[in-house]
Design a protein around this nucleic acid. Structure first.
Lengths: 127, 127
DNA sequence: TTTGAAAATAGTAATAATTATTATTTTCAA
DNA sequence: TTGAAAATAATAATTATTACTATTTTCAAA
């Protein structure tokens, strides 16, 4: 049975108002403002809980720590190859893409994750 | 200046003949047949080298260790949500997809990585 | 062919990210 | 109220990978 916790509530609200795709570490540091004694383990546990419940999304970039997104509407992400920053991609998820992938596949496809790579506006301009 | 090494040669050949998307650990254990004293660090260093040179591909699944693929022809991968096995998806890379993503994006998109998720034939059949 | 500097190696230590453990505190239905 | 279940803070442990270092290998030039 899930019980309420101030910490989880606050973490969720934080992600709902900060669309910056923060890492667990960043969430942890920012949570410390409100809960000076909060532990990193609590942040991880609640991020996992919220992700499992579908209330937030986990973004695994492949290198560096995972990032978290309070925007649960399906969307794609861009990851800057230089600074590692994660940005939203304004595009509808491609359902035809998934259907096509399933055509010659002997198992069952339930979803897909796409990350776009390249250079973010800042890095492209030479920052 | 890159110098030849028996170990790197063998790792590359192993990946060219085993399309099983092995982890560094698996490559390491199998290399031990030929090089009983090979070190895990050597395997990692060479996998990184080969990947950087574009001679193999690194597959970061998001959880669990990275996997490596000797097939450098661009293609997609399927990752089983139950057993974690990685399978090839028989589909042409979608260039229109990337073009679409770049339309409203203020930076520069140079590539994308897509992983499909679901249940592999074995797990679907209840193994 | 030697030779010797650069690169690679094996062995090991260190790091980064995350999960597990545990004693204490909080939540909340009865 | 109360007390069992869940959550927490603090900390230890684990996993995957990279870094360090003394020794060995490679290979171009003598």
């Amino acid at each position: 049975m899930l019980k309420h916790s101030k910490q989880r509530e606050s973490i969720k609200q934080y992600l709902e108002t900060h669309y910056t795709h923060p890492t667990a570490e960043t969430v942890y540091l920012d949570m410390k403002e409100e809960f000076p004694n909060i532990s990193l383990g609590t942040v991880y546990r609640n991020l996992n809980l919220l992700a499992d419940m579908g209330e937030i999304i986990r973004i695994s970039s492949g290198n560096g720590p995972d990032r978290y997104d309070g925007n649960t509407k399906p969307h794609y992400h861009f990851i800057c190859s230089k600074c590692g920053d994660v940005l939203d991609i304004d595009m509808e998820p491609d359902t035809a893409f998934m259907a096509q992938a399933g055509k010659n596949f002997p198992g069952i496809i339930t979803g897909h994750v796409t990350h776009f790579f390249g250079y973010c506006p800042k890095c492209h301009k030479g920052n």
